[in-house]
Design a protein around this nucleic acid. Sequence first.
DNA 1: TTGACATCGTTGCATTTGCAACGACACACT
DNA 2: AGTGTGTCGTTGCAAATGCAACGATGTCAA
Lengths: 146, 146
Amino acid sequence: MSQTLPEFDLDGYVPFRFAVVAHQLSRDLAIRYKDRFGISITEWRVLVNIGYSGDVSIRDIERRVSLEKSKVSRAASRLEAAGYLSKCVDESDRRLIKLALTEKGTTLLAEIVPIAQAYQAEVEALLGDKFEMLQELLGTLMDRAR
Amino acid sequence: MSQTLPEFDLDGYVPFRFAVVAHQLSRDLAIRYKDRFGISITEWRVLVNIGYSGDVSIRDIERRVSLEKSKVSRAASRLEAAGYLSKCVDESDRRLIKLALTEKGTTLLAEIVPIAQAYQAEVEALLGDKFEMLQELLGTLMDRAR
DNA sequence: TTGACATCGTTGCATTTGCAACGACACACT
DNA sequence: AGTGTGTCGTTGCAAATGCAACGATGTCAA
C-alpha cells in the first residue's frame, strides 16, 4: 500500500535555499530598478560589466557573468535601442562586437550603482561579522563550476 | 566628456553571486532529473513538498516554497497529468484543493530523493566544516523576507 | 588557395515565467 | 437572505528564457 519515503528535510536543502534567497535578492533589486529606470536585472548585469570591464564582447560577458549569450545579445540590443550603449565591430576580429557605454549609459550607471551598493550594505549590516564568511563561502561555491 | 563611475566590484556583489551559485546548483540538479525522470526543478519542489508536508493545498505550497501560485498550479497540473499526484476538493473549505501523491508519485519521490541528498553531500564535502556556517547564513537571509 | 573545423553574435521556436484578471467559494455584518 | 470584502486556484497574455540552428568570420593544415 503506502510506501515509506526516505528522510528528507526540504527546508534545510541547500540548492533550494539558495534558489529562494537568490530569487528574493534579485526581486528586491529588480523592484528598485525596474520602476525607476526601466532596467531589468539582466540588463543591469550587462551594463555593469561593460562599465567596469576592459573586455566588452558579448562572449566575454557571457563568460564573466554566467549569462547565456543569447540573453546577453538581447539585453545588449535593448540597451542599445534605449541609447545606453553602442555596438561596433572589432576590426582585429570581425566576429566580435565591441560594446561600449554611451554617455547616457554612463550617467545611468553612475546613478544606479549607489543603489546597488546601498542594498548590499543592508545585507552586510544584517549579517554583521559573518559577512566575510559568506563571501568566502560564495567564492568556494563559484569556483566549483567546472 | 567621460564621466567617472563610482567604485564597484561586480565579482564581489552578493546578489549577483547568489544568482550565479543558485543558477548553477539548479542547473546541475535539473540535469540529473530532467533527463532521467522528466521532472523539472519546479515540479520537484512541489513533489517534495507534498511528500513531506501535512499541508497540501496550492496556497500552502506557495507559502512554504516561495513559488508563485500560478507556477505551483501549473506544475501540479503537469504532475497530475503524468499520474504522480491527485487533486481533490477540500470539503471543509471548497476553495482549497488538496494535493496528494499517488503511489506512482511516491515511488518516483523515493527514487529521486536520494539523488538530491547525494548532491547535497557533494556540496557538504566541498565546504567541510564551514557547511554549518553556510546553513546558518542562509537561514538568516531567508528570515529577512518581510 | 582550398577545405575542414571552430567561434562569434543573432534569430526562430517552444517552453516557462510573472502578473493581472477571473469565477468560485468563505466569512462577516446587517 | 443579501451585500461587501477577502481568499483560492486557474487562465490569458506578454515577456523572458534555453536551446539549437544559422551565416559570417577566423584558424590551421594540406
